[in-house]
Design a binder for these strands. Structure first.
Lengths: 336, 336
DNA sequence: CTGTTAGCGCGTTCAA
DNA sequence: TTGAACGCGCTAACAG
């Protein structure tokens, strides 16, 4: 398997063209403080860099430094979609302000030791990964290799640095809104399948807030199909059923929205409906779906901050990082 | 900025533990053909690898080899969403079958020379990137550095290897369906803003197919707002206006769908509506939106195949790769 | 002041 | 089965 036009220009090529040594090239290119290189020399080097299109090989740099400026984020398996997408974009930007490069690893399937080995090969400074892809020993492998591991989980893990993403607060935000509107019988739609865990966490927040207010709440399981949505809608509309429903996210909200409409229920009069994640979908429905929004910018901020703390902390500090990911904000539209 | 537990285990560590030389470790770990290492030795090495959690440093390997097994894909700027997401997942899988690792670069903003330099630093074997982020000279920089560049564009570029993504075919598929249903006055919704280019390409396909069938077609600009959608709906419903509309994608379709409904139009009787990309949204609407689907698996196949051809082709072959990305398939639902 | 020499880091490969 | 050299950028020590 050969390659394009050939060998990349090296610092030696630049040095030759500029008539200086390789050290000088390094000093100029990295703008090393206290390096006494005369301006004319500097200019010659930069001109040569320009002419050759020289870009220092990160491999060589990393090999020498022992550790890279890379932050590796394996694509999360579960919640594909805009939230992840937007967060990645902002995180990438913020990290690059700290001289870090965010690389997203395309492999979504591997977990445990195999995954850890795959990530470790790249010797990233840090790995930012959802808890479901790591075991205790895979984290140990990475840390032994000099890579910090920051796990995204819904509660702090005793054996790893954790970025706590308290999904319960999403449900709490929905509950606060619905309770304030006078509802006393709430329900949470919990997706069946791989998203169930996340769904339960959000539903639990709703339940907790309801109990605290002396209101009633229940969980209703639902798959991402029209049939299942119809069944859920029927369950909601049974005599004595809930007057307000919180769905795992806006997609489930949209499905239930349609099912309720098909069954002749009007929103918010018969049933109030609140989704989550504030997806574009929410605004396309009629009546438009209220939704609990998480700000991707804020999430990216928290992530960036946590990663930097991890990389800057003194050698043996035992403290686990634990941060809450974002403040859920209710966007009220027409269904509540 | 220091790091985790320390230094990663090296081949020297493994060699020491197994009581062999570093060369032997290399031969065993890489399973080099024709290297006659006795089975007991082999076993000792592998045991040591296991015990230490050794993972060879890609940097060192890459430095030595001069080229990596990395395929870099900068996140596309424009069409965020599930299509991209699903394609990345499948592509990652297929590439790893060829021993290649897909890394997605989080930076979405940089273009031209700055971007090229950023990518070149990683010395990837190939870069897979949308045409709007590259200039002729930035591609030249990458190729000089030994990196193959595969551009995703809507038509072959004379100065780069191109993966042709003929967006026009999406519009053609919509037209074929609508013409077969007897429509003779078609319209295409073209998004205003950054998506305009893509939108025009899809609309052009509709126009071509309509002309070929002796039918009429027009383009209608629309922003992603309810106000603009209302204006577009009014334009559609004017006397003598189109009887069928193709929207850039399902999100624009959803917006127009709602606006048409608000204005009392029924679908498909008053107006037939077809979106694109087959997003989940399409199934949540009432009536459900017909949509032109592109198969992400097929797209990933094409991409993987093109990348492999690029990496395997003999040194100076001038041929440009040009492949069509996917066959659009119409999913008929209730609006057409 | 200005710039250079020498050697390191780690995995691979060829000759011995 | 191994010793030695290599690939490229960084930096401490050193010389003009």
């Amino acid at each position: 398997m050969n390659s394009a036009a050939g060998r990349a220009p090296t610092s030696a090529d630049v040095a030759r063209l500029a008539g200086v040594s390789r050290s000088t090239v390094s000093l100029v290119v990295n703008d090393v403080p206290n390096s006494r290189i005369a301006q004319p020399t500097r200019d010659r080097v930069l001109a040569a860099v320009q002419e050759l299109g020289y870009a220092p090989d990160v491999s060589a740099r990393q090999l020498r430094a022992g550790i890279s400026r890379l932050v590796l984020m394996p694509l999360p398996r579960l919640p594909r979609g805009m939230m992840v997408d937007a967060t990645i974009e902002h995180l990438s930007e913020k990290l690059s302000d700290s001289g870090l490069t965010l690389l997203v690893h395309g492999d979504r399937r591997s977990t445990g030791m195999a995954a850890a080995r795959m990530w470790a090969e790249l010797r990233p400074a840090a790995v930012l990964v959802a808890a479901d892809r790591c075991t205790k020993s895979s984290v140990a492998l990475l840390r032994r290799a000099g890579t910090e591991v920051l796990m995204i989980a819904d509660r702090p893990l005793p054996w790893a640095d954790t970025l706590e993403f308290d999904q319960g607060r999403v449900g709490e935000a929905a509950a606060a809104h619905l309770l304030a509107a006078g509802h006393r019988r709430l329900a949470a739609i919990v997706p069946a399948g791989p998203l169930e865990g996340l769904g339960r966490a959000r539903a639990a927040g709703l339940g907790t807030a309801a109990r605290a207010a002396g209101a009633h709440s229940e969980a209703i399981a639902m798959e991402a199909t029209h049939e299942s949505a119809a069944a859920a809608a029927a369950a909601v509309r049974r005599p004595g059923g809930p007057t307000a429903v919180f769905t795992y996210n806006d997609e489930y909200g949209a499905l239930l929205h349609r099912a309720l409409g098909d069954q002749g229920a009007t929103m918010p009069d018969d049933i109030a409906l609140v989704g989550a994640d504030n997806l574009p979908i929410a605004t396309y429905l009629r009546p438009a779906l209220s939704s609990v929004a998480l700000d991707p910018v804020e999430m990216a901020d928290h992530m960036c901050h946590a990663i930097r703390s991890l990389l800057e902390r003194p050698a043996r500090s035992e403290a686990l990082v634990a941060g809450v990911l974002a403040t859920p904000l209710l966007v009220r539209r027409e269904t509540s």
